[in-house]
């Protein structure tokens, strides 16, 4: 059947992308002094791609996405510093904490549209306030936590690399399996999906938990990499903003969209405007507006619209 070949091509394109990313990020530390640039490139690819799991595949816009990141950072810090877990266990703990918070917040999934987005934002603020109310000898209070004894940027780099591999595997599973088809159907019309037999609640839960675990892991690894955790940077709304912008710029709903978007925009972000933080912020805002007005489906989405014949090959 002709269709089977089409989907084989699509799988091969995706396999190529995965192989290129794996190889590229695996050998980079041997080629460059600028480890930090590539570390943050991975970070944003993961953040934007995991955002795509809920936004692109399931149609939810969690404006409080940063909550998972912040919770992961603090879980790592507390487990390592206060409870003296080794770093790998602390990171696993961060992932589990992310999943737990995701489960706790799952009831909000029955809210729709902007109600969900706004409540998610309020929950992120509530998570930040909750941590600030926890005893200071656990969280470091307003000073935050310093993990200097764990300092090992190269190891942290490869920890992020492992998270990237996990992300690519999850992305493959979520999008190319039956779950992926069910998710897209829910995104387009939840009620109609239920009427043709899709179990809406359990399907979107898979996407939701996946989207909660990755930012938590990323928050933990980033804390390890920089050795510092504090409330303002761990729960900075700009983390949500950048995840959204990178994912949307590439194209929500496609696996390659957030990867392309993060690669391009983060690169531009770093290379040109690093010196002017405020101007950078202004540009971020302007880019969001322009993207939404000019390219609402992102680069990949616009390409797919323009060259509809090739669409079936885009993973």
């Amino acid at each position: 059947m002709e269709n089977a070949r089409d989907s084989r091509v699509r799988v091969m394109v995706w396999a190529g992308v995965v192989a290129a990313l794996t190889l590229g990020f695996a050998i980079v530390p041997f080629l460059t002094d600028n480890l930090s640039f590539m570390f943050y490139m991975m970070l944003w690819i993961i953040m934007a791609s995991a955002f795509n799991f809920v936004a692109g595949l399931a149609g939810y816009m969690p404006f409080g996405y940063v909550a998972f990141y912040g919770v992961g950072a603090y879980a790592t810090g507390i487990l390592y510093k206060t409870l003296e877990f080794p770093i790998p266990l602390a990171l696993i703990g961060a992932g589990l904490t992310g999943a737990t918070v995701g489960l706790l917040l799952a009831p909000t999934l029955r809210l729709r549209g902007v109600y969900f987005g706004i409540v998610s934002l309020a929950l992120a603020m509530a998570a930040k306030l909750t941590i600030s109310l926890m005893p200071a000898d656990l969280t470091g209070g307003s000073l935050g936590l310093i993990l200097s004894s764990a300092n090992d940027p190269l190891a942290a780099y490869y920890a992020m690399f492992v998270v990237l591999l996990l992300l690519l595997a999850t992305a493959t599973w979520l999008s190319m399996s039956r779950t992926g088809t069910a998710l897209r159907a829910i995104r387009d019309d939840q009620e109609a999906a239920a009427v043709v037999g899709v179990n809406v609640v359990s399907t979107r839960m898979k996407a939701w938990i996946s989207a909660a675990v990755f930012p938590a892991l990323v928050g933990g690894v980033e804390a390890w990499y920089t050795n510092a955790i504090d409330l303002e940077s761990s729960f900075n709304l700009l983390i949500t903003a950048k995840s959204i912008v990178y994912a949307m710029a590439g194209g929500l709903g496609y696996l390659v969209g957030p990867i392309l978007g993060s690669g391009l925009l983060y690169g531009v972000d770093q290379l040109i405007w690093r010196q002017f933080p405020t101007l950078n912020l202004l540009l971020l805002g302007v880019i969001i507006v322009l993207l939404m007005l000019m390219l609402p489906r992102g680069i990949v989405g616009a390409f797919a619209q323009r060259f509809s014949k090739l669409r079936k090959y885009i993973p």
């Binding site: 700009l238 912020l281 971020l284 805002g285």
Partner: peptide, 15 residues
């Protein structure tokens, strides 16, 4: 879409 556009406006205006 409106939420996102206005989010962008918020960031730009703040900056």
């Amino acid at each position: 879409a409106s939420l996102l556009v206005m989010f962008g406006v918020a960031i730009a205006l703040g900056a």
